[in-house]
Each structure stands twice: as C-alpha cells, then as structure tokens.
C-alpha cells in the first residue's frame, strides 16, 4: 500500500502562504488554528529560505506514543489522525511533536484547551466518510475523493508535494539532480527515520 508523505522543497518555496490559506479556507479551520505554517529563515537577506510545515504524519509518531487516551491513530497509508471526541486537550502531543503540528482551540471552561486539531492530510477523520459530522470536525476528505491535499494542490511553485512517498521522493531526486545541488528532503530523517 502507498505510504503518504509530505515533502517541502526549500529551494522552491517562496513564502506565498498559499498553502496556509488554502488549508484554513478549504477545511474551515477554527479561528486561531493553523494546521500549516510557513517559516522563513534569514528574512530579507540574501539566501533567505522558506519552508511550509504541518503534521508530517511520522512513522512511529511521538504523539501517538504519548497520548494518555489513545485519541491519535495511524491509518494503514501512514496518515496520522486524531479522534476529537476522545481527545481531552491535555497537550502532551504538542510537547512530543518535533514539528509543532498539534493545535488547540480555546475550550468552553476558563479558556482551557479544547480537543486537538491538526493537519489531516485532507483525509477527514474517524467519522463516516463524507458525513456532515466529519466535515464539521475535521474538514474535507480529499483522499477519499482521490485528490491530493489542498495545500499541495494549491502550491504555485510545486515546492510542497504530497502523496505516495516513493513517487514524491523520486520527483524530488530528479529536481535535485537537475539543479546540481540540494540536500535531503527536510524533516524526513526525523519524521520517517528509515521506514
């Protein structure tokens, strides 16, 4: 079975934030929640680099290991999802995550954290596929429709790639070869290890 991964090409990302807007708008993400962010290093200086970061859907995901209520799970295709009805908003996943992916809306009581929200790889959630409940809690389920996640689909420079790990790694390798320079895909060591 295909193993889904994200890959952001640092040489191509131009900090347009199109992926962030596409994700927020397309998934009707709650106010104050950013499932995806663009980080810029050395802004305004020669050699400025940007990278778009969301949940990397890690192999052996740290968030799954630390969740005290087993609210986070991994699908067979590697996509890591959260069950918002089980989540208690303790924030342990945020502390475990190397990428700062888990986000928390303000809850109803004393502004304590509500259930965790994060990138779903546009694969909805544990509710019935295409149900209103799934759409309301988690946003679109584009994977079930056979489409790539909104962020990657939207990316103007095709810096952000999403899909079968072998396919996107191959595409990236060809780019690096054509450019004659480059490094390994950012974050892959940490997120996927050798798997």
């Amino acid at each position: 079975m295909a193993r889904m991964k994200f890959l952001c090409d640092v040489e191509r990302c131009i900090d347009c934030n199109g992926c962030v807007v596409a994700c927020k708008e397309g998934n009707q993400v709650p106010v104050g929640i950013n499932r995806r962010r663009v980080i810029t290093i050395g802004e305004g200086k020669p050699g400025e680099k940007s990278i778009s970061v969301a949940c990397m859907h890690c192999s052996d995901a740290p968030c799954i290991a630390v969740c005290p209520v087993d609210a986070i799970y991994q699908r067979e295709d590697g996509i890591v999802l959260v069950n918002k009805k089980t989540c208690i908003g303790c924030g342990y996943c945020f502390m475990a995550c190397p990428f700062g992916a888990p986000q928390f809306p303000s809850g109803k009581v004393f502004g304590a954290r509500g259930a965790m929200d994060k990138c779903t790889f546009c694969a909805g959630g544990p509710e019935k596929t295409f149900s209103d409940e799934e759409k309301q809690l988690y946003g679109q389920n584009r994977i079930a429709e056979g489409k790539v996640p909104l962020c990657a689909a939207m990316c103007a420079t095709k810096a952000l790639m999403a899909g079968d790990a072998n396919v996107i790694a191959d595409a990236y390798r060809k780019r690096v070869f054509a450019r004659g320079s480059g490094a390994n895909a950012w974050g892959w060591d940490r997120a996927y290890g050798k798997k």
């Binding site: 640092v10 040489e11 980080i39 290093i41 050395g42 200086k45 020669p46 050699g47 400025e48 680099k49 990278i51 320079s181 480059g182 490094a183 950012w186």
Partner: peptide, 13 residues
C-alpha cells in the same frame, strides 16, 4: 542564516 547552501538553512530550520 544568511547566504549559503541549503544545508545551512536546514540547520537553521
């Protein structure tokens, strides 16, 4: 990070 190869910016990121 300033100018430099992408590995340098990786380190910064």
């Amino acid at each position: 990070a300033g100018p430099g190869p992408s590995t340098a910016s990786f380190t910064a990121i």
